[in-house]
C-alpha cells in the first residue's frame, strides 16, 4: 500500500487504556470525514484495541505497523462523524 500523508498526528506514548483510545477518539472527532489520523503509541494492547474500536465506531484502519521494539504507528481514516 502506498504511504498516506496524515492530516493530523498524535503521540500517545506513555498512556495506557482507556486513555489511549480516549485521546485517539477525541482526535478523530475533531477531524473532517476523509482525513487521516496518525497515532504513535507504545502500549502494545492499544495497538490491537484502538484499531478494533475504531472499526466498531465506523472508521477505516489504514495501517498498523510496529516501527521499533517499543512503538507502533497506526493510521486511521475518518469515515464517520
Amino acid at each position: 500500500m502506498e504511504d498516506t500523508i496524515p492530516d493530523k498526528k498524535i503521540n500517545i506514548k506513555g498512556l495506557v487504556c482507556p486513555y489511549t483510545f480516549v485521546k485517539a477518539k477525541l482526535a478523530i472527532e475533531s477531524m473532517e470525514i476523509g482525513q487521516v489520523l496518525e497515532i504513535l503509541l507504545d502500549y502494545e494492547e492499544a495497538s490491537r484495541s484502538i484499531p478494533k474500536s475504531m472499526e466498531d465506531h465506523g472508521q477505516k484502519v489504514l495501517k498498523v505497523e510496529k516501527v521499533s521494539d517499543t512503538d507502533w504507528v497506526l493510521q486511521i481514516r475518518k469515515d464517520k462523524d
Binding site: 482507556p18 486513555y19 480516549v22 485521546k23 477518539k25 477525541l26 474500536s53
Partner: peptide, 14 residues
C-alpha cells in the same frame, strides 16, 4: 479526560 473517559469512548457520547 480521566474522569469522563468511560463516557468519551462511548460512540453515543464522545
Amino acid at each position: 479526560l480521566m474522569r469522563y473517559s468511560r463516557h468519551i469512548i462511548l460512540p453515543e457520547v464522545g
